[in-house]
Design a protein around this nucleic acid. Structure first.
Lengths: 355, 355
DNA sequence: TGCAAATATGAAAACGTTTACCAGTCGGGA
DNA sequence: TCCCGACTGGTAAACGTTTTCATATTTGCA
């Protein structure tokens, strides 16, 4: 079933690299003008049935495929979009990318991957591809502040099509898709409170991260709703990595009046924390409950399986791509889409004092 | 320090979308010809110092950046390369991609991500970008048979620059980078034998995968070296996923004369297997040792931490990109690079009969 | 049958670069 | 003083499309 456009092997000299066949070659071979070939391919109804078939036969025979660079130059759109990401190894982000790709495929776009490694210079270099017309739009997946993107939008390229996903929902002056971090964090906090926990520590990521901020806000909101005072001593700061989670977890033991639960703001942290806590002799969840956020594929297979919040990563990507396409198609309305999350209770949370 | 090329905010009307500035605008503003502007940017030594500075000042002032599409059309190279991958969520592959990107950056390339989802049609569509001149080369990361790539190389586009990474070392008619799967599998088998295991089951992926084949070969080789007969009953077939590993692990219990060790041909499988074995009441490693392959970041944090083979994913990507660049620069020699692996003994393997 | 309208095709411009070729200028050696 | 080479910089072609405009042909209808 999978036919490529290349069946041209028949007509080429095996010992002599075949020059690229251009629209001109097709027009000559078919005995029509270049314009007609172009139309037969791109506007089939603007040409007679007979001509169209003749042209398409020749196209097939020569193995012609239109030079997309020339097409881009002429039509002023590249059908390429850039996905900016801080770390492609992050499962949420890679899930997102997958969703983007799937939809991009269907809409005729290809995706240019920009792994910025959180570096302004690299990010700027990618954004420059926009001004250089090598790409039509950008999907920003970074957790980081999107300084350059703002600058780009506001100053340099008013046409710039930018969509934000997985981050910065409120601040972004562009279409966005994400989840309700505040509500999800409330749900998890409520779950822990419901189990009977009174002292719930949280492990948060960098302060600049909107995820840190929003999840913290949800946690505090739900605490207040339950009539429990927020205690800053129960806040552990780290980064959204397993390593950091592991390191930061050691601090739990130093706390006087040790918390009975730990809510980590992403799964990697939680996994790192559990590893450390376990190695320090605490049993999860008997001695301390641990919860995560994201539901990366691994969490369900961790031992014990991690209680967490599911985020529809792939769907976020899909929506982001659709939003970008709409923007590129002239849509001016700035839409913000919020996707539902889901609390997934597994084995790392239990009532305090479980034997 | 991160300066974009766009400081043009000063000279534009805030209420009136600025049209893209072209080389012609620069030439007029600088009072020189288009050719001179082009030279000032691309061949600085071909213009006088005074002219060069004048031009560059104007470039800066207008916020000009060359249209890369036009440049591509003229110079017949896009500075884009395609990375074909079956599943971006695979940690080894995403590590590879990261390595590719880093090197690509330095060499002036951008990377077009092709998540083929193991679909021939999608793969063909991406490869078509090559013939369509929207990309200069391809790095194939797939574990799968690279049928289309072969076809492409052999039939359609003799110039096509293709590099293979992480797979198919021997079969590929193109520069390749990978690890010694056979040797690594021997090392792991030797480790298990050294612990005293006599009955070692293996869990393998799809038969078509060169990884399945080579790792199996290494396993059998080392078995033979130890004078132990290969027993086909100890081979469990599955896919390289946690889910499959979990499902397949159940078969272990059905075996009469149960093996004391299980060597999974990748970490995801191993993690899935451990989860299932544990839930069935077997202790790892006391009742059964389990080993993986890849050393994905997660493995070190699993509980218990997984004994596995480390693969330098990021470096494989880096090497692949360098090989591709060499090929694009006219290098004709087909080189095959094999990177070293490393046995990492952690907690999931122990002598049989450990209490 | 004749004429307007629709249809089919071609010629050529345009997209924004890079570069081959050419011409002018300047300096230095004979 | 004259000529030749080095150095600058301009003109225009080329890259491969798409699309506007114009023209030729066919169709439809009275």
């Amino acid at each position: 079933m999978a036919r490529t456009a290349h069946s041209g092997a028949l007509v080429q000299h095996p010992d002599h690299p075949k020059a690229m066949v251009s629209i001109r070659d097709v027009s000559i071979a078919a005995g029509v003008s270049i314009a007609t070939v172009s139309r037969a391919i791109g506007n089939p109804d603007r040409v007679s049935k007979a001509t169209r078939e003749k042209v398409l036969t020749v196209v097939e025979a020569l193995g012609y495929s239109p030079n997309l660079v020339a097409r881009s130059l002429r039509s002023q759109q590249s059908k390429l979009i850039i996905v900016l990401v801080t770390n492609i190894a992050n499962p949420v982000l890679s899930g997102c990318i997958r969703g983007i790709e799937k939809v991009a495929q269907g809409l005729g776009y290809s995706v240019l991957l920009g792994d910025t490694q959180n570096d302004d210079v690299i990010e700027a270099r990618y954004l420059n591809l926009l001004s250089a017309r090598q790409a039509d739009g950008v999907i920003q997946l970074s957790y980081r502040q999107h300084g350059k993107v703002d600058e780009l939008i506001l100053n340099s390229n008013p046409d710039a099509a930018v969509v934000n996903a997985c981050a910065c929902l409120d601040a972004a002056p562009c279409p966005s898709v994400g989840v309700d971090d505040v509500g999800a964090a409330r749900a998890m906090t409520e779950h822990l409170l419901g189990l009977g926990h009174k002292r719930i520590a949280v492990m948060t990521g960098p302060d600049e991260s909107p995820h840190s901020r929003d999840r913290m806000f949800g946690y505090r909101l739900q605490l207040r709703a339950a009539g429990i005072a927020f205690d800053d001593a129960l806040v552990i700061r780290g980064e959204f990595t397993m390593k950091s989670g592991s390191e930061a977890a050691a601090k739990i033991l130093d706390l006087k009046d040790r918390p009975t639960a730990l809510f980590c703001f992403n799964d990697e942290m939680a996994i790192g924390a559990i590893q450390k806590l376990t190695s320090l002799g605490l049993r999860v969840p008997q001695d301390i409950s641990v919860a995560g956020f994201d539901d990366i594929p691994f969490s369900a297979y961790a031992n014990p399986a991690l209680t967490t919040i599911y985020q529809p990563a792939e769907e976020m990507g899909a929506v982001a791509m659709r939003l970008l396409d709409q923007k590129l198609s002239g849509e001016t309305e700035i839409r913000t889409v919020t996707l539902p999350t889901e609390l997934r209770v597994r084995q790392t949370t239990a009532p305090p004092g479980t034997p």
